[in-house]
Deep mutational scan, measured.
Amino acid sequence: TTIHVGDLTLKYDNPKKAYEIAKKLAKKYNLTVTIKNGKITVT
């Protein structure tokens, strides 16, 4: 599972963990989490 945050690309083997991290990042920086085709993007 890949999380895209701006220019950063973070890879995680565990999709659930990746989603949790994405949610935390989104909350911290007041951003939105988008999931599309298995890719998690924080914008």
Rank of each mutant, 00 (worst) to 15 (best):
T1N: 09
T1S: 11
T1W: 14
T1D: 05
T2I: 13
T2M: 09
T2S: 09
T2V: 12
T2D: 04
I3F: 02
I3Q: 01
I3T: 02
I3S: 02
I3C: 08
I3V: 13
I3E: 01
I3M: 06
I3L: 14
H4L: 13
H4P: 01
H4T: 15
H4W: 08
V5F: 15
V5D: 02
V5P: 02
V5S: 03
V5Q: 02
V5T: 01
V5A: 02
V5W: 15
G6A: 04
G6Q: 04
G6D: 04
G6E: 03
G6K: 02
D7N: 15
D7I: 10
D7V: 07
D7F: 10
D7P: 07
D7T: 10
D7C: 15
D7S: 13
L8R: 07
L8E: 02
L8Y: 07
T9H: 12
T9P: 03
T9D: 10
L10W: 04
L10R: 05
L10N: 03
L10K: 06
L10A: 03
L10H: 04
K11W: 15
K11N: 15
K11G: 08
K11V: 15
K11D: 12
K11I: 15
K11M: 15
K11S: 14
Y12D: 03
Y12L: 05
Y12G: 05
D13S: 07
D13K: 08
D13Y: 06
D13N: 07
D13F: 06
N14V: 05
N14L: 04
N14C: 04
N14M: 04
N14Q: 06
P15F: 15
P15K: 08
P15M: 14
P15N: 06
P15Q: 11
K16W: 12
K16G: 10
K16Y: 11
K16L: 12
K16S: 11
K16P: 03
K17S: 07
K17W: 12
K17A: 10
K17H: 10
K17F: 12
K17R: 11
A18D: 01
A18R: 01
A18I: 04
A18E: 01
Y19N: 05
Y19E: 09
Y19H: 10
Y19G: 04
E20Y: 11
E20H: 08
E20R: 09
E20P: 01
E20K: 10
I21C: 10
I21Q: 06
I21K: 04
I21N: 05
I21Y: 10
I21T: 08
A22V: 06
A22Q: 00
A22M: 07
A22F: 06
K23L: 15
K23A: 11
K23C: 10
K23D: 08
K23Q: 13
K24Q: 11
K24D: 06
K24L: 12
K24G: 07
L25G: 00
L25A: 01
A26W: 02
A26H: 03
A26M: 04
A26Q: 04
A26R: 03
K27N: 08
K27P: 01
K27M: 09
K28T: 06
K28Q: 10
K28D: 08
K28E: 09
Y29K: 02
Y29F: 11
Y29T: 02
Y29E: 02
Y29S: 03
N30L: 05
N30G: 14
L31N: 01
T32M: 11
T32F: 08
T32V: 13
V33M: 10
V33H: 00
V33W: 02
V33Q: 00
V33T: 02
V33L: 12
T34G: 05
T34F: 07
T34V: 13
I35N: 06
I35V: 13
I35M: 09
I35D: 03
I35S: 06
K36I: 14
K36C: 11
K36T: 14
N37I: 10
N37G: 12
N37P: 11
N37A: 11
N37Y: 08
N37K: 09
G38Q: 07
G38Y: 05
G38M: 05
K39S: 14
K39G: 09
K39F: 14
K39H: 15
I40V: 05
I40M: 06
I40S: 00
I40N: 01
I40F: 04
I40H: 01
T41C: 07
T41R: 09
T41F: 15
T41E: 10
T41K: 07
T41H: 14
V42C: 03
V42G: 00
V42F: 06
V42R: 00
V42E: 00
T43K: 10
T43R: 12
T43M: 13
T43P: 01
T43S: 14
